[in-house]
Design a protein around this nucleic acid. Sequence first.
DNA 1: GGGGAGTGGGAAATCGCTTCCCAAATCTCT
DNA 2: AGAGATTTGGGAAGCGATTTCCCACTCCCC
Lengths: 339, 339
Amino acid sequence: MIAPARGAATLHDVAREAGVSLATASRVLNGSTRKVADSYRERVETAAEKLGYTANLSAQATARGTAAIVALLVADIADPYFGQLASGVARGADEAGLVVTIAITERDPQREVKLVRALRGQRPRGLILAASRVEGPDAVGLQGELEAFSNMGGRVVVVGPGGGTARSVAVDNRGGAAALGAELAGLGYREAIVVAASEGIRTSDDRVDGFTEGFTAAGGSVREVRRTGFTRDAGYAAASELLEGDVPAGTLIFGISDVVAIGIMSAVRDAGRQVGADIAVAGFDDIATGRDIRPGLTTVRVPLEDLGYRALHAATDPEWDAAEPELALEVIVRGSTPP
Amino acid sequence: MIAPARGAATLHDVAREAGVSLATASRVLNGSTRKVADSYRERVETAAEKLGYTANLSAQATARGTAAIVALLVADIADPYFGQLASGVARGADEAGLVVTIAITERDPQREVKLVRALRGQRPRGLILAASRVEGPDAVGLQGELEAFSNMGGRVVVVGPGGGTARSVAVDNRGGAAALGAELAGLGYREAIVVAASEGIRTSDDRVDGFTEGFTAAGGSVREVRRTGFTRDAGYAAASELLEGDVPAGTLIFGISDVVAIGIMSAVRDAGRQVGADIAVAGFDDIATGRDIRPGLTTVRVPLEDLGYRALHAATDPEWDAAEPELALEVIVRGSTPP
DNA sequence: GGGGAGTGGGAAATCGCTTCCCAAATCTCT
DNA sequence: AGAGATTTGGGAAGCGATTTCCCACTCCCC
């Protein structure tokens, strides 16, 4: 049904139309524990339908003191990693009748603090932080804001290793990377170079450590760990630089994430080398692109959509079991690392 | 500064702390045309800082009658096409001090109608619809909801060909596809198959028509138009089926979007054929993946980020020039269509 | 038939913020 | 110096909901 020409129908309009009080209309239309007689209920519903009534969420939020909102903070929504994650968050939110608001940090810690503060104004039920540094020197301001957010009654969820009052949905980066390292060493690789993000970023550090552990334990050795960023271009640049030096055939380059690894693959090709037999490449995450490129990218599958879905639940379910089994990771060997 | 332990600081708290009236505090903290003496202003600002005050956006929205929100409706946020678009929207929103809420249609017209209706509850300033059918039989309910939305005072922006009261930021799909067709015919291709989305979806139809026009005008001929969906898997399935029949070497397959084309490329390979010299493939949009796969995907570059940015402005600027020059498209020939 | 329990509608307070309107104070200009 | 025009702070009325009381009924049982 369509709303009347001028402005939107309010609950008041509906009540008047139905000939009942505001209280009754509210009870019928927007959940309440109290019962309303069927005759009244029906009248209200008819009136609402006729007027095309939709509750004003802002008003509802002010009255209730909390908004049916979950805020999602990501580094870059065009990055497939965050896209898939957001997808899971959105699905969960939809099921729970929540609205998702999204904010982009552009990987700038300052901006991140500012955003959390601004987000506080929405009085959301929960705040999901993906790809943030919740620890280290950059995070000093953040911790304070997150605490303020909690005190206000919102739930903070960190995707990755948590800290403080925040709940966290973690991925066993270390274990997954170790498994990957072991698998690749088993395939015969002996020399590896790691292209990681800067030190202090837990996700990156854990993957580096895990990989090193697994790879060396199985007989390989990590020749170098190169620090850059989390983007394709960072991977490309790092690998290009690397390849200017002497990188023997049969070397494996492990990119800290698939996005980075894809940059590495391009750099390898542009340097006139060959991905696979010549220089092997592996990543982490298993984004869609990695499946479509040739050779396919060897990686560790992270169920990102599920991860987002879980994060949403961690942010909204009052009873939430932190001890829930971690998401299962899986090493996927493709053509980029031939035996 | 950090909020006090219990609940968030309200404007009332700030006013009391500063020893001024609510009205004055409001005028100082949240934009107003009225001037406030510096001595008062300073006192209020200090108090706000001390209490860690952040305006309650919901309350602000109820009082003002409209929320500082822009709603974005996309088919699938994990799809890089929408990811990039969303990126532009988010950038513009950030600049304008607006919050972006996101909803996923899953390409289900019914769901779409439901979402628009629910979104109405937020009383957003604008609604950006990407990848919707605003026309045709599926859109009957939608049109009504959009109208209701407009009547409520919100601006509707359609990415793609608009309709009704909606503003639209369009892409010259037809022209771009025609240029692509011409270019490829110029490269020597004579036989083409088009893998498109179902009929009635304007974006798809325009691209099909444009391509056909350009390709035939330059001497080629379109052998068949296959209708499926807008996803990678749809492209894969369609191409697989196609390749079971007799597809001569040298045939060009044009996927209606890069995502579809990438599915096609995989299908070609899995059918034991070769992308490029054997079966050529072209797409549309120029998503990042198309640049990283080998051979590179020939396509038409659509500045998606800009498109999103423009959509945001169309949704929020009161004065908006519909006649703004359309975004420039560019044919990009890569290895998937060797001469 | 009377009284206590249960049911369910409605009046009104409230949520946090904006803004209209009034009145006091300060300017301005002749 | 005095009258009218400006400023600018504050009181109070909204905005569109929710929710707490209060109270009129009906029912049931002794």
